[in-house]
Amino acid sequence: MAEVKTERKSKEICLKEVTKKCPKNRPLTDSKHILRKRLPVCQPKRNKDIYVTNKTSFKAQLNKCEKLLDAGEPEVIIHGLGAAINRACNLALQLKENHHGTVDLDINTSTVDIIDDFEPLTDDADYEVNNRQNSAIHIRVFRTALIGTLKYAT
């Protein structure tokens, strides 16, 4: 998960930028532009990766994690970005509590580069890009007591 912070040399090699970068704390609204958020760079999306959002109900996310653990997955990785960090922590802690200490947490934090596009509203304006960073959390929830699959348990 630390790869997120690797240097961005490669970007400079391959891409010639046309749009100018704007100052770091650019106001989000502008008379000439409209903000369009881009999807942040994702971590891998395997079966065990769970990306937490604030829109999905907490219960559903919890159920999803528990199902995965019950199906014999040795570890679940919960990712939370920005405002969802809080919820990711809650989710992990709740899992720990529900499993009575048979799972443990391994917590990593990172910073994610986020790009916002500013789409022009008038003919003479150009696209602008705002690079900002946001913090993210990656919680590895893993079993300490290795019991087999609970698939057939009643």
Binding site: S10, V41, Q43, V129
Partner: peptide
């Protein structure tokens, strides 16, 4: 994990 998001 890609860190390179292309500019146009």
């Amino acid at each position: 994990v890609s860190d390179r998001i292309p500019m146009p």
